[in-house]
Design a protein around this nucleic acid. Sequence first.
RNA 1: GCGCGCGUGGCGGAAUUGGCAGACGCGCCAGACUUAGGAUCUGGUUUCGAAAGGAGUGGAGGUUCGAGUCCUCUCGCGCGCACCA
Length: 934
Amino acid sequence: MIHRLDFPQTAVLMSSLRRQYPFHLIEPKWQRHWEAEQTFRAFNPGEAVPDDHPFAQRHGAGDPAAAGRDWPAKYYILDMFPYPSGAGLHVGHPEGYTATDILARYRRAQGRHVLHPMGWDAFGLPAEQYAVKTGRHPRITTEQNVATFKRQIRSLGFSYDWSREVDTTDPDYFRWTQWIFLQLYHAWFNPGTNRAEPIDTLTYPPECDTEAERRAYRDERRLAYVTEAPVWWCETLGTVLANEEVIDGRSEVGGHPVVRRPMRQWMLRITAFAERLLQDLDTIEWSASLKEMQRNWIGRSEGAEVDFALADDQASDEAGRRHIRVFTTRPDTLFGATYMVLAPEHPLVDRVTTSEQRAAVEAYRAEVTKKSDLERTDLAKDKTGVFTGGYAINPVTRGRIPIWIADYVLISYGTGAIMAVPAHDTRDLEFATKFDLPVVQVVQPPDEATDWRGFVEAGISVNSTGPEVSITGLPTVEAKRRITEWLEARGLGRKTINYKLRDWLFSRQRYWGEPFPILWRKDADGTLYHEAVATADLPVLPPPLDDYKPTPDGQPPLARATDWIQLPDGAVREVNTMPQWAGSCWYYLRFLDTRNADAFVSPAAERYWMGADRSTPGGAAPAPGIDLYVGGTEHAVLHLLYARFWHKVLFDLGHVSTPEPFYRLVNQGLILGEDGQKMSKSRGNVVNPDEILVEYGADAFRLYEMFMGPLQETKPWNTKGVDGVYRFLGRVWRLFVDEGSEQDFEQQCAVHPEADPALLDGLRLTAAIREVEPTDAQLKALHACVKKVTEDLDGLRFNTAISAMMVFVKEAIAWEARPAAVMRPFLQLLAPFAPHLAEELWDRLHAHLDQRAPSLGYAAWPAYDPARLVEDELELPVQVNGKVRDHIRVPASATPEEIEAAARAAARAQPFYAGKTIRKVIVVPGRLVNIAAS
RNA sequence: GCGCGCGUGGCGGAAUUGGCAGACGCGCCAGACUUAGGAUCUGGUUUCGAAAGGAGUGGAGGUUCGAGUCCUCUCGCGCGCACCA
């Protein structure tokens, strides 16, 4: 049921004095109507469409599939669903929502079957922190916040199909989040097929002959696996964080310090999909900058791994001499490798360190661990490091080179060790200079004048001849290839591709998240192992708790629920929970079939809405995936990368039919405060939509959000600016409504201050609106507007579409007769932008004409006739040397020769070339004439 | 440091493939209707100039009959990445 807009009473009294039009009655009226009629319901394949639904009136009733009809082409348009915070909506949220709503209504009018849903990403830290402080269950806070968000979003009149609302904290939802986690758990990545496959397709090596060994082998290869690895721990938040959630050594949320600490954690094997996540970016329509961010994050780099033997290694065990494996993108500079550097954490450090150097090495390592990661990666800081005393053999020069440790080499990237080529690597050069290590040129810059020291680009190899191989004289690309082939032939190295992307740390030590559907058991040997909760036992609900803090011994809060953890058969539950990203990784799929109790989505619904069935006559081919996804840039890597990853796993396992979820994605720009600063509570520049709605109404608010500027740009809010679009709506109102009846109406309003839509019934439309033949000028104004609005909507240029409507209204308001055949299509153009006002006037227009009003949302979008736009006569500027000097009027059919003759005759232009020679006359038909004279 | 994006009136912003810079809106100025106006309507509003005319899209060059748009350099702002070998 639609609530009334609960305006604060005083504000209503103050603002109602000068209302441009009675939006306070119109808006609740139509919101209630849409709710009652279920106007914006989208129907799934196989679902019966009620006869009286407007969709049925346009596209046919009943089950179109059963009736042998085809479904209209689908259009799936999605907003990034919000985290319902306690602060409620601010004007930034509805920017994207308004844009998508306008497009949803536009596509619906064009006959597309539109899916436009909304939901709540409601697990998360604020509700939990609030619970820790107050003891109030996060469920209660969450429900309140959802209610606030929903009220605010509904008051804007968006055409969401609310029957598909999802809430990630609803057990009927997260049952499937857990189910998808189990799909990952029960799968492995087969490098042979480059796909995720069920874990039972895994073949075991012969040495795994006990069940325990096979289990260990299997568990190491699952897409969801457990590892004991250094992770980012945030003391303040009391949880670990994913790499992506740590910015400059601080938590992305709240900016708290984080430290590296080894812990047993769940990981998801996103790195296996790095190449596909990268390559498939080419198949989707995202902005170049967003794709670039994802590419950077994935961080593919091609190079070679090279093994450097330890010079004085005493080991003579069967493994033979130990070596240090490095990754380099410049194998062609191998001859210039004059020393090596290991990350301080590298496992071989102990082995290579000599007894004389041990004290120094230990001291350095201790110092490094003390440093926070912020200090370690601090900008432009001095290089530090110590010599280990050990040496390695350069495989091509056969020379002994010293092995150092330094914290500029990261354990987490590549092999955690490098060959240092100071001549052609900036960092190595800096280090070598500081510690006086040799610098040997091996690349000649193409330009003689360029200094070879620190030259890091491609050139010609020099000084690159050893006892067994030479690449001297080869250009860099060739040299890389040759040396890599040689290394491969000798078993000393191989071509390798490295990614910056790390596996996704998936567990959190929190209460308010999805529990893992995992149990721990001990086998006969007392070894702990994990197993999946049976699908039938999902969802695993979080236990009730009174205290949401971690346990005193540092266990996650779920460990407090001792009864819940312990199963009767001796199994123990996993006490970590999933990160907030889990729920948002797949919500767009749940929208397709929200209430399905048997599957996360039915195959038929999935195939239809994701566009796998492309046989849709009578419409554009649906996009493979979501047609348009709109949201902020803040999710450029995290959410969008995680969701793409899950989608690919589900695709490989046959649960979804498209390789990518979001075919087209647009980032809306940030809305700044009136002071041009980012909106924030501390700055006190937050604009609350509720206040704008009281003063101006939802339609004006929507219009202003779109009129401010291009959707993708950052732009400042200016409440004064709302006046402009508000006046425009007032002019539209007066374009239709009879002045006399409006005066009576205003008196009625004054007598009955309580908002009652029934009062609207007293209004009449102006007698100027008649069924008369439109003039050519009127048709031209209309068709120009239809063309502009249509094209601008296709290009997401909402601001200029609105301006075109303003131009039309300005012209139309001067007409003594306003032909219904012109005014009616205009309302259709206005409808996506200002749906409440358009519905009211549409309804009245049809009553005025004694016609039955078809449902505005489903009325066919007006077409424009280019023939209506052609002019008989054109006005062209006449330029002399590029400057406009005069104008001429010529018939539209004039030939270039005739235009030139007219231009030469243009009197005001003549003085500017009098006495000069006309060198050339450029005639651009329909545009201008330029006389070049000197 | 590297990568990407953006610089147009007092302000938000318009300007097809290079073709009349400043659409539309805010603000401001003047007028009309008014007891009144944060209402409505009309006109004006880049800048210098009385005008004729000149200048003008961060700055400097270039290509072109013609550049806000293309090219080179440069300055400023924003965003992303940041010892990734």
